[in-house]
């Protein structure tokens, strides 16, 4: 009886801890589909008599339909970005504050698209054109400032497990090599020093990329982010060399 209770307790704790480490599901992205409406609009715009009321009504309906699809898509995609952003686990208060700032900006855009969506039903042809311009302007502004930044932050965040794995790998390799107390001129130790240099450089670039993003320097941040991964890959090339040489020269 006591053994059964002990085993059930063990299993329970194990299951709870396992569940807490499960990955969070990613946000589902909705695909925007304009169907044949764009072609329909182009076709109706080429009609001979642009003043006939039936044609105007038909054109207005297509314009409104397309505007609704567009506004909904913009809103949905911004919401998706926001959801993906919310899945990032901030490791510092500064990071948390920065993510919250981006979240608020995205929420403002979502509110704008939602508001424009509600105006569409009451529009005439000119009003529909004006709203289209407003949406285009807001989208261009959001793309070039906020959304590129958020996408870059999401990319940067997706790199972090690679650095964590690399750090653990490097730490394990170092512990293993330290255990043999090899001389400084041993081939493996020389390679280890090379790996240290590369890994540190990769980590610095990684941190630099984050700093650039927080300074809204998206392009230079992306370049540093890419370089950080390239240096990490170089460090792994050296890890592989260490592995090959160690297997030949050390009693592993």
């Amino acid at each position: 009886m006591k053994i059964a209770r002990f085993l059930s307790t063990t299993l329970g704790v194990f299951l709870i801890l396992s569940a807490s480490s499960l990955p969070v599901a990613k946000a589902e992205v909705k695909i925007c589909d304009f169907g044949t409406k764009v072609e329909d609009l182009k076709k109706i715009q080429t009609r001979e008599n642009r003043e006939d009321s039936a044609g105007i009504i038909a054109e207005l309906k297509i314009r409104k339909d397309l505007l609704k699809i567009t506004a909904t898509c913009l809103k949905d995609n911004t919401e998706t970005l926001d959801t993906e952003l919310s899945l990032i686990k901030a490791s510092t208060p500064e990071m948390k504050a920065f993510i919250e700032w981006m979240h608020r900006q995205l929420q403002e855009n979502i509110a704008f698209y939602s508001y424009k969506e509600t105006q569409i039903d009451t529009l005439g042809i000119q009003g529909a054109k004006d709203i289209a311009r407003e949406l285009a302007s807001r989208k261009a502004q959001a793309d070039t400032t906020l959304e590129n930044l958020v996408i870059s932050i999401l990319d940067w965040n997706s790199n972090q497990p690679l650095f964590e794995t690399g750090s653990k790998r490097f730490s394990d390799i170092k512990k293993t090599l330290d255990a043999f107390k090899l001389p400084n001129d041993h081939e493996v130790i020389v390679l280890e020093k090379e790996a240290v240099t590369l890994f540190n450089a990769a980590s610095l670039e990684n941190q630099g990329a984050w700093k650039d993003f927080t300074d809204r320097e998206v392009e230079s941040g992306r370049i540093k982010m890419k370089e950080s991964l390239e240096k990490l890959a170089e460090a792994y090339t050296v890890f592989l060399k260490i592995s090959e040489v160690s297997k030949k020269t050390l009693p592993l």
Partner: peptide, 29 residues
């Protein structure tokens, strides 16, 4: 103290490959 798995070539190659894939994805963007 000896982590012989840390020098496992298969694991190292898999991790290096994951980095290459990520570089390619960012490169395309």
């Amino acid at each position: 103290p000896i982590r012989s798995n840390s020098l496992n070539t298969g694991g190292l190659r898999a991790e290096a490959e994951a980095i290459d894939i990520q570089i390619k994805l960012l490169g395309i963007d």
